[in-house]
Design a protein around this nucleic acid. Structure first.
Lengths: 189, 189
DNA sequence: ACCATGGTAAACCGATCTGTTTCCAAGTGC
DNA sequence: GCACTTGGAAACAGATCGGTTTACCATGGT
């Protein structure tokens, strides 16, 4: 077993950072993060070299759960079209919650304008994975230009996230027909 | 003539606020704004009651120029379809500039998570006007559901703004076919 | 009982935040 | 010359920022 002292503090910090930065933005203070996690600043700075790295680590940790909530279960026997639609259905249903603030990775990249920020790097990677997923499914479904379709879908995804996140749109019934139109245009069967 | 003492300070502040918050985010400090505008804080606080109001006023002032850069000239004799496409062509060409950071109104709403912030209110109104423009043109073009199409187009607009703004997408050749697919699906002639 | 470890609370540091105030120089009218 | 306004420079206030350090207290091994 790899040494696993201090098991809780680290995770509590990551969870608190994920929750608070999502609600309040990346400019939330370290004192607030530590207080919410029930961890002293001293311990925090033993676990993470800086706030930036804590933020990046919290986004990274959140990543697998985030995509798990978006993608269909591994054992589901859906076709490529359904596997794409599933992502958008999930976003639409998530956006119904009043706590929904859009894709945390998009928000992070917009708030930290600096693309070299460690958290921006993580965010870029996660979003890249989503686009890659779309591309794979598009290919599988025989789309005429899988790469192009994947870019279109990511655009829709981020647009929907952003608008629903600021409460400007309620996605209900909007997303499915829009995505369907693009899939049809791309010849995805 | 309405009294127009202190003509320059006010405008310089508004311009500086627009430019700096766009580049650096809404968390830019007041000292930096005043220094960039060449106006003392004392004068600034005589002209505006708070930073929030200055920010809101700068977004409001920027609004007419912003939509002017997006919409076709008033005397242009374009059909509804072209008048819609024109907006997206403009975004695509603007996004080529390295200073492009996406729609400033979307960014503002995302960064200030508070929808009651005066600047959020202004941003919401400006974006509402864009959606209204789309709806009008959709109606004019005989779209089957103008309201629905307008929501779709705004979604694309914001998605494109966001992704190009963070440098994740270069819109070139992506936007026109995507929008065209939606216009076709809506039966816009 | 003793000491090491590890973690919390809290003071502290210098910087920066929004916002206020003081001081002073440059007009301006008379 | 002289009262008066205007506004810039900058100090200031109080809070908070990221980050460090000190002081104390709990545990547990021996």
């Amino acid at each position: 077993m790899t040494t696993d002292l201090k098991p809780n503090s680290r995770e509590r910090l990551l969870d608190a950072a994920a929750a608070l930065t999502y609600r309040e933005g990346v400019n939330i203070g370290i004192d607030a993060l530590c207080k919410a996690a029930g961890v002293s600043k001293r311990s925090m700075y033993q676990l993470f070299p800086s706030k930036d790295e804590l933020l990046a680590a919290s986004l990274e940790r959140r990543a697998s759960a985030y995509v798990a909530g978006l993608l269909p279960a591994a054992d589901s026997d859906l076709g490529p079209r359904e596997r794409i639609m599933h992502v958008f259905d999930q976003v639409a249903s998530q956006s119904a919650s009043p706590e929904f603030r859009g894709c945390p990775y998009l928000s992070a990249e917009i708030e930290l304008k600096n693309p070299d920020h460690p958290a921006s790097r993580v965010a870029r990677e996660v979003k890249g994975n989503l686009t890659a997923y779309f591309r794979t499914e598009a290919e599988q479904g025989g789309a005429s230009d899988p790469d192009f379709l994947a870019r279109q879908l990511t655009l829709i995804f981020d647009g929907a996230s952003a608008r629903a996140g600021i409460g400007a749109e309620h996605l209900d019934g909007l997303l499915a027909p829009t995505v369907a139109a693009l899939l049809d245009a791309a010849g995805l069967h």
